[in-house]
């Protein structure tokens, strides 16, 4: 039981990270009906900006941990948001109205470009970071097995919950959120009530990118190492999470992320680490066979 609880904690942590990335996929899909194939790279950039900020803050002599974390989060979100905005400007906006395949390919191009850009600027080797936040709390102790929740895991889970609530409120209650939903449901009509559609789409990329940055910061802290290639697999997993939850659905993305995280954690600990990805993707296939729109997705059919 203790072992199970421990895996549950680990899975939730991992799942939070996938969920944060998955939200970016699902929001962009919701508003332009396309998958942002460079989103994994945006997350990778978030991680690199985090590691650079950690180093700079260290050099500047800032050592108070909460302040360091806060600054790293804010700066990483801000810079990554700029990348998200640029991505939309370069890979998507010029191709608005083009056949659907065109922006897909330009996004893949952006993804390859960003990987190489980071590889050239930062080198191909793995980048380690000194542990910033250590320690944790022992929840239970039985038969020599201690269930621990590290402070970092706690932060990751709490931060994810806070961001989820904040984003749901933003989408549900604010002018920007309503504009986003309007663009999602009928873009031409949204313009006809005065929504600046281009700006709204750009802001959606910015929001997705800043959440991916949070995931990037957390992963940097959690694993302590990153490289220019981490965006690929994490992007794929988060995309899987978004599809599993029902692409276009915000709670779906979070649920999908958590499920993928939990499946990975439990599969690795009870079966074999090597096949954890096979397990996640198999579950995806199974869910899609029986629920083609994902767990919380909805069919496109609508009374007009």
């Amino acid at each position: 039981m203790a072992y199970f609880t421990q895996q549950l904690i680990n899975g939730l942590t991992l799942g939070s990270i996938y969920g944060l990335i998955a939200i970016g996929y699902t929001m962009v899909y919701g508003i332009i009906g396309m998958i942002n194939f460079a989103h994994g790279e945006i997350y990778m950039l978030g991680a690199f900006i985090a590691i650079i900020t950690f180093l700079l803050l260290g050099l500047a002599g800032v050592t108070f941990v909460p302040l360091v974390l806060l600054l790293v989060l804010i700066l990483s979100m801000a810079f990554t948001a700029v990348y998200g905005w640029t991505l939309e400007r370069m890979a998507y906006r010029p191709l608005r109205g083009a056949p659907r395949l065109a922006p897909l390919i330009s996004a893949i191009g952006m993804s390859i470009f960003l990987q190489n850009y980071v590889q050239i600027l930062q080198g191909a080797r793995v980048k380690p970071i000194q542990p910033v936040l250590t320690g944790g709390m022992v929840l239970t102790q039985t038969e020599g097995f201690a269930v621990t929740l590290s402070y970092l895991q706690l932060i990751i889970i709490v931060l994810t919950v806070v961001l989820m609530v904040a984003f749901s409120l933003l989408i549900g209650k604010t002018k920007l959120g309503r504009a986003q939903r309007a663009c999602e449901q009928d873009r031409a009509m949204a313009a006809l009530v005065g929504v600046n559609v281009d700006k709204t789409i750009a802001l959606t990329f910015v929001m997705g990118a800043s959440l991916a940055a949070v995931a990037g910061v957390m992963v940097t802290l959690y694993w302590g190492v990153i490289d220019f290639f981490i965006g690929f697999l994490a992007g794929l997993k988060a995309f899987t999470a978004a599809v599993l939850g029902g692409i276009g659905s915000l709670p779906g993305a979070m649920l999908g992320g958590l499920l993928i995280g939990l499946i990975e954690a439990f599969w690795s600990s009870y079966f074999s680490v090597e096949y954890k990805d096979v397990a996640s993707f198999s579950i995806l296939v199974l869910v899609l066979i029986f629920m083609p729109y994902g767990l919380l997705g909805r069919p496109e059919i609508e009374k007009v």
Partner: peptide, 14 residues
Amino acid sequence: RIFPRMTVIENLRM
């Protein structure tokens, strides 16, 4: 061209 997944009030708000 009513926004189908918004309520009447939300449509008016738009």
